[in-house]
Structure formats: C-alpha cells, structure tokens
Amino acid sequence: MSNSPKMRRMLAMGVFYVVLTAIAFLFLFPFYWLLISAFKTQAQIFTIPPQWIPHPVIFNNFVELYRETNLFRAFLNSCIISGGNVLLTLFLCSLAGYAFAKYPQARGHGKLFNFILASMMIPGAVTLIPSFLMLVWLHLINTYWAMIIPGSASAFGIFWMRQYMSSNVPDDLVNAARIDGCTEFEIYWRIAVPISKPALAALGIMQLIASWNNLMWAFVVLRTPNMLTLPVVIYLLQGEVRTPFGMLMAGGLMTTLPLILAFLFFQKQFVAGITAGAIKQ
C-alpha cells in the first residue's frame, strides 16, 4: 500500500511543506525573540535553558522605557521626519515625473531625463560629506529639515512616476482639461495625481521604510536628545558596561510594529515597487 505512487506523492508533499514551514519559522524567529524578550527581566532573558514563553510576563520594561527615555518624543520625531520625507518625495517626484511624461516635446527633455537616470549610479558614500557640509552652511543641522530634504530628490522616484503617468494618464484627458480652462498645475493636481494613486502608494511605502530606518544620516545630522529618532534612541540605549536588554527589546518592539503593520497593509504596492526597480535595468 505504502508503495503506491499516490502515497509516495503525498509523503513527498508532506516533507516539502514541513521543510518550507521550518525555514519560514527560522526567518520569523528573531521577531518572536524580540517579542518575548520585551516581556522578560534581564535575568529571564539570559536563563539557560531559555524561556520560550516568558514566565512570569513582565510589563516593567515598558514602564521603565517611558520613565527613563524620551521615547514618546523620539516616536514623534520619527513620525514627523518620515511623514515629511514621504510627502516631499511624493510631491517632487510626481510633479517632475508628470512633466517628463506629458511634455515630451520640450527642449532638453531627453537629455535631462538621461541625466537623472545616470545619477542613479552615484553611490551615497561619495555625496556623504558634501551633503553634510551643505546642511551645515544652510544652518539646518539638528533640524527636521536635515532629515527630510536630502533624500527626497529621488532619481528612482522620478523614473517610477514617469513610467506610470506616461502609460496611465491619457493625453486626451489632459487636452480636454486644457480646453476647459484648467491651468497646467490643476491638470497635474486634479487629474494626474488621483489617477496615479497606486504608483504613489508604492513609492511612498518604500520611502517610508527607508526613512524610518535611517540610522547613519540621523547619527550625522541630529545632535540634541530632543531631536533624535527612534533608531538612534534605541542604539544609544546600549550601555558601555551593562545593556538593559529588556528595555531595549520593548523599545525595539515599538519601533518595529508600525513598519510591520504598514508593510502588511501595503504589501502589494511594496512588492510592485521593488519589482519595478528590478525591471528598469
């Protein structure tokens, strides 16, 4: 009986799913560790054998986090910076993307666009120091603007918006609006932007993740404790001598959750964005 091909197939399928699921759980494991460690004391975190389910469940880490750090302020800073960066990026890239999609006859159109594409080859490492100095000269160090402005001129964003708008915003509609007496900006704002919502969502979620997680730049341009973003605050919680891991994990949980929720909510758009980035080459 067990030698029948049907049985063998089912067995193979079973093994296949077990292996697949095991790997998936391996990938989820650090999240699980983050979650349970947030509800453990320092001693519980380091017991051997490890406590797979915290016993007892401790909420003190969150209380201490609230008392000892300025986490709420950091959360607010992160929201303002990420929100500002996403909105500015979406506005700049969709406006320029619209221009590149709908005025192909303008002089220099092709050259300027190729120039933008070529600039995607420049690694951030080369522009690091001069960008920093630029912010120093503009007296923007330790302001939200220092985090919001530099990353918002995204060459990929322009490329992405242009692709979408040139194939999804009909020229007839644009011309009809023009005859009806709409100004060029109104056509962009009232017609092109609403049509391009899916592309905007994809670009927005990618920018949000990059901006929320940005550690290096935050380190360089933010100076005073009241300006720091969540990743920096979490990083600085690590002590030279003793690191309060429970508190760190509680803070880590609060830093990670908004992104996981945003990702699960916008999964489709995010995947679409990455895929488009891959196809462009």
Binding site: P30, S37, T47, L230, P231, F245, T255, V271
Partner: peptide, 26 residues
Amino acid sequence: AALFLPCVTPMVVIAIVFSLIFSSEK
C-alpha cells in the same frame, strides 16, 4: 511575508536581537 518581513524592519532593533541570539554563553 515570513521571508520578506526582515527587510522592512529597522536594522538597529534586529541587530540587537541577533546579538542576544549570538551571545556565546547564554
């Protein structure tokens, strides 16, 4: 989602979780 979630999470948090997982004695 299981394979993809890691690349949306803040590296700081995850690197600290990994330093716990990698800890040599505990």
